[in-house]
């Protein structure tokens, strides 16, 4: 088990390889479909994303009616492939070093990871309670006009568990598993 702590650096990211099980501690920003579309449309991000991580997540949040503070009720990853058309641009234009999500991403993103120094961390899909427990505070929220699940939430995490499935050297576990399963499928339907 490896540990990755904030502030994140290109050097630390380049050391990670496909299959590494990593515990991430520090800051991350949620961003899913609407945020990526918003950036792709030419809007500037509401925060500086240089050396930051984007988490593909639409959390369940509850706001305390008195203090107005938010509490995370559930916060697992959402399917990443929907951001495939946009993700590499966010790497290029804003310098993110990590993308956290589920299901993996495609060639454009893999090329972006290599070129701009970024890693795809696969969180465990559906594990909303385990992952919410590792989120120690909700520090801010941006773009709330996109709706709560689509807003950009600034989170503090401790020991957030992930597996590196796409690294910054061109390696993709998703591509490997897909190829093998296709080969097996061809045998099974013969």
């Amino acid at each position: 088990m490896k540990k990755l702590n904030y502030p994140f650096t290109q050097e630390a990211i380049r050391e990670l390889k496909v299959g590494d099980m990593v515990l991430i501690s520090g800051k991350m920003f949620t961003g899913r479909d609407a945020v990526h579309k918003y950036l792709h449309d030419g809007n500037k991000p509401p925060v500086d994303l240089k050396n930051q991580m984007i988490y593909h997540c639409g959390p369940v949040m509850l706001q305390d009616p008195k203090t107005k503070k938010y509490k995370v009720v559930a916060a697992g990853p959402t399917t990443s492939i929907r951001e495939e058309p946009y993700q590499w641009e966010v790497m290029r234009d804003y310098g993110i070093v990590g993308v956290i999500g589920k299901g993996g991403m495609g060639q454009k993103t893999l090329d972006g990871c290599k070129k701009y120094g970024c890693v795809y961390f696969h969180a465990i899909g559906g594990a909303a309670q385990v992952l919410a427990e590792r989120i120690t505070s909700v520090d801010n929220v941006y773009l709330m006009e996109l709706g709560s699940p689509e807003a950009m939430w600034e989170l503090q995490v401790v020991d957030f568990p992930c597996v590196v499935t796409m690294d910054s050297h061109g390696g993709s576990l998703h591509a490997e598993v897909l190829e093998k399963s296709k080969g097996k499928f061809a045998e099974l339907i013969k």
Partner: peptide, 22 residues
């Protein structure tokens, strides 16, 4: 590792009475 976290999550959601998945 994935199955271990999945099992932990099932137990935790039941205990917290919170959504298993967001």
């Amino acid at each position: 590792y994935a199955m271990q976290i999945i099992n932990e999550n099932i137990a935790l959601a039941e205990k917290n009475s919170g959504p298993i998945c967001q």
